[in-house]
Amino acid sequence: MQKREYLNFEGITISSYEYGEFDKIFNILSPHKGIITAIIKRIRKTSNKNFDYIDVFQKMNFKASITDNFYIIYEAKSVETWFERPIKLTNLSSGNIIAELTINFNSINENNNYIYHLVSKCLKWISNDIFIFTLVYFQIKLLLAEGIFPEINICLNCNNKIQPGDYLLNLIESGIFCNKCSKKTKFSSLKLLEQEIRLLKHIKNTEYDNNLNINNIITKKVELNLYKKLSTYIKFYTNKELKSEKILFSSLNK
């Protein structure tokens, strides 16, 4: 007989799906245990004093029983809700991209607490209608936390300092080559423009707080192009497509 344990934890609901007739399964990002997959029984049918309204993109205090690594939530109380109704498609799909990236990179390490607060911060910015900058910020901070941020300060081949300009980002080597050495790196490369490299460096070295106040030094076009390039870079590592991306782009075009 497996021993039953109990756990109280704070978490952010990042995705959910219906299970059985009345139940739902939630992927909950926690500060210390990465993503916890847990079932909430009868949540689609009844209201229960132990549960506040629960949906994705909410920070909640959970109480769970655990048997054989299987979590059953028996109490959930709201701490913070980001997406107020009515919800626009751009907000939902941007939030879903954060969720997909978090799930794809889910690993339990010393950076869990940082990623937890990063997700919390980025969901808040998205709820304030800051979309692409938030997604680029999230991509860069996630790459740094996972230790796969590309080398952008020195040339991977000759080790010379990279001067302002356009360069090729090599996906396999995870870094950029100076113009002299770039002839050696024609395969699996992305062209990064000077402004995109500036934005990469700026976000890498800047930690914005919850109340984001960005100066309009960077154009939306640069943000979007950098987002797309980093998305290709991330796909190269995770080998996973982001389903929400196509829907985000179509909603941005409208």
């Binding site: 995705s15 498609l89 939902l92 799909s93 879903n96 991209i97 969720a99 997909e100 389903k243 929400s244 196509k246 829907i247 985000l248 179509s250």
Partner: peptide, 11 residues
């Protein structure tokens, strides 16, 4: 229903 995380958009 629209569910970007499942690849379901308006189309």
């Amino acid at each position: 229903y629209i569910s970007p995380i499942n690849g379901i958009g308006p189309n």
